[in-house]
Amino acid sequence: MDGIQPTPDASELPVLDISTLSTFKFERVLSEMIWPATETLIKKYTAQERVMVRETEEAFKRIVVPYIESFDANKLDWLYAIIQGKKEVERVLYRDEDTNEGFLIVPDLKWDQTSMNALYLTVIVKTDTIRCLRDLTTAHLPMLRNVRAKVFETVQAKFGVAKNKLRLFVHYHPSYYHFHVHVVHIYHEALAGMMAGQAHLLDDLISLLELSPSPPEKSILARMTLTYALGVEHPLYACFLKAGEEFV
């Protein structure tokens, strides 16, 4: 294929943080490389059988919470370095320094920052008290509304993309258990992470919280049954099997 440059030898590539995604753009091919790749990452990107899981509130407490708590907190050091302004400072598009409701907006490493139709940003909250969407309560509504407003404002100002061209969503289960929001252009090519069950629109989460009782009562998100596809190589799948859970 003419115009394609030879792939660089691995020995010539920089050692990347595990959170880093390198993109090599050729004339006709856009390839992505994560290096070094852990066993978890290899399993994540390996073609595998998937099953539908119906996760009740009880299953979340009994199976998922211990799974989340089993993670080594040090594995998120790369993330906290970004939050604390120790890394990737120049890439941050917006930063709110409030300890409890603050957040930052950064371009996702999957976006080359040239094609607006492929726009992909990530919003990372500063607080470490929200692991996933089930932890959200009515107390978080001001922060979530502010995230939505600042994303619209920042993207319009920096990239000229109107708010009605943006899709904001949250993954369940996420790649890492520190609350973050994905922002993509509505013309972005379909990604596996946008599938029903895994992607939950931020607007929908806000609406469900607006219908929820205030703490100490549990929110709808904490009480509802969540249904999603889970790969058989995903570590959580083994946890469900061990607990004797039946799949849909």
Rank of each mutant, 00 (worst) to 15 (best):
T129D: 14
T129C: 12
L133E: 09
Y94I: 00
L121V: 00
T127G: 08
W111M: 05
T122P: 00
T137P: 02
D128A: 15
T114E: 15
D96E: 07
D128Y: 09
F103I: 00
D98T: 10
E101M: 13
D98W: 08
E88G: 04
I130C: 09
D135G: 01
D112I: 12
D112H: 13
T127P: 07
I124T: 04
T99L: 14
L119H: 05
L121F: 07
E97Q: 12
L121C: 07
C132T: 15
G102P: 00
V92E: 02
D112E: 15
S115W: 07
D98G: 05
T137Y: 08
V89K: 10
L104Y: 01
L119Y: 02
A118V: 01
K110N: 13
V106P: 02
D96G: 04
D128C: 12
D108L: 05
N100C: 07
D96K: 03
V89P: 00
K110C: 11
R95N: 09
P107V: 01
F103Y: 04
K110G: 09
S115P: 00
E90V: 01
Q113D: 09
V125G: 07
D108I: 05
C132L: 11
D108S: 10
R95H: 10
N117Y: 08
E90D: 11
F103L: 06
T127I: 04
L93Y: 04
T114V: 15
T137C: 07
V89A: 08
L119F: 00
R91Y: 03
V106T: 10
L121S: 05
T129V: 13
I105W: 01
P107K: 06
V106R: 01
D98E: 12
D135L: 10
I124S: 01
G102Q: 03
E97I: 13
Y120I: 03
I105M: 02
T138D: 05
T122A: 11
E97R: 11
V106H: 01
T114Q: 15
K126D: 03
L93G: 03
N100A: 14
T129Y: 09
D108Q: 03
N100G: 14
E101R: 12
I105N: 00
T122Q: 12
K110P: 05
I130Y: 08
A118G: 09
Y120A: 08
T99F: 09
G102V: 03
V123Q: 04
R134T: 10
I124L: 15
V89F: 04
L93A: 06
Y120D: 00
I130K: 13
T99D: 14
V92K: 03
T129F: 09
Y94A: 03
R134D: 11
E90T: 06
T99Y: 01
N117H: 10
D98P: 05
L121H: 03
R134H: 13
K126V: 09
T122F: 05
V106A: 00
